[in-house]
């Protein structure tokens, strides 16, 4: 299904700094409202959940509905108190999960 997600965040941050994270994943986000050429409804298939964890603790997550555009773009913030790893996960209606990881270091 989805290609490799694109994630943009700084490589390093000062302790206590709030950074911005931008994510984009390729997905059709089939709303379930559309009909095919024969007039039959096309089954819904969307990313219904996105989560972001930092060092195993939740930072931000969201539940998504068909009213989210194709190739969902999600931008949010995170406060950095220590170096570590962000884990991102996108859950599809079919149960498959796309994950990604990004490391961030503390600025000296």
């Amino acid at each position: 299904m989805a290609d490799k997600p694109r994630i943009k965040l700084p490589k390093e941050a000062k302790k206590g700094e709030i950074i911005q994270i931008k994510t984009l994943v390729s997905h059709l986000m089939e709303s379930g409202q559309r009909k095919d050429a024969q007039g039959k409804p096309i089954a819904r298939k969307i990313i219904n959940k996105f989560t972001c964890e930092f060092n195993g603790r939740p930072v931000f997550s969201c539940a998504l509905e068909p009213a989210i555009s194709a190739n969902p773009y999600i931008q949010f913030d995170a406060r950095i108190d220590e170096e570590g790893t962000f884990k991102f996960a996108w859950t599809d209606d079919d149960g498959s999960v796309v994950t990604a990881e990004e490391k961030i270091a503390l600025k000296a």
Partner: peptide, 17 residues
């Protein structure tokens, strides 16, 4: 959508399409 923040979010800000 429903967005869920935590104190680790730093700011209650987000953008979606």
């Amino acid at each position: 959508a429903t967005l869920m923040f935590t104190p680790m979010s730093g700011k209650a800000e987000a953008s979606i399409r």
